[in-house]
Amino acid sequence: MSNTGEKTAATRSLILLHPEDNVLVAVASLSAGAEVTIDGEPCVIAQGIAVGHKLARQPISAGEKIIKYGAPIGSLTAAAHKGEWVHSHNMQSDYLPSHVRNKGSAHHSEQER
């Protein structure tokens, strides 16, 4: 993790797991309004994103596959702009539906706090 040119750990907040991915993963929790760097360009994120969660690397249309680890992990159900949180509110499995404890707003507002 000491490659020259790579951002230091302290300033790195997102990682790209595979060059073909269209989502990035937060390596630390980010609050709403935080400025991040996506592919060299600054981007302000609108909502809080917890560690381990995904955000769009580029604008993605509804119906497009989400690629992570270089592999499809589901499809987007609503368009996402660059830097937007990608999770169960705008994405679904191409295999089996995911079971969630609280369907609807309760779960999402928790993430946005």
Binding site: A26, A50, I73, V86, S88, M91, Q92, S93, R101
Partner: peptide, 17 residues
């Protein structure tokens, strides 16, 4: 699927992910 609510809280969205 084998997917618990805590998985989603932690940022996993789908079983294949």
């Amino acid at each position: 699927g084998s997917f618990a609510p805590g998985n989603a809280d932690g940022g996993l969205t789908t079983l294949e992910e």
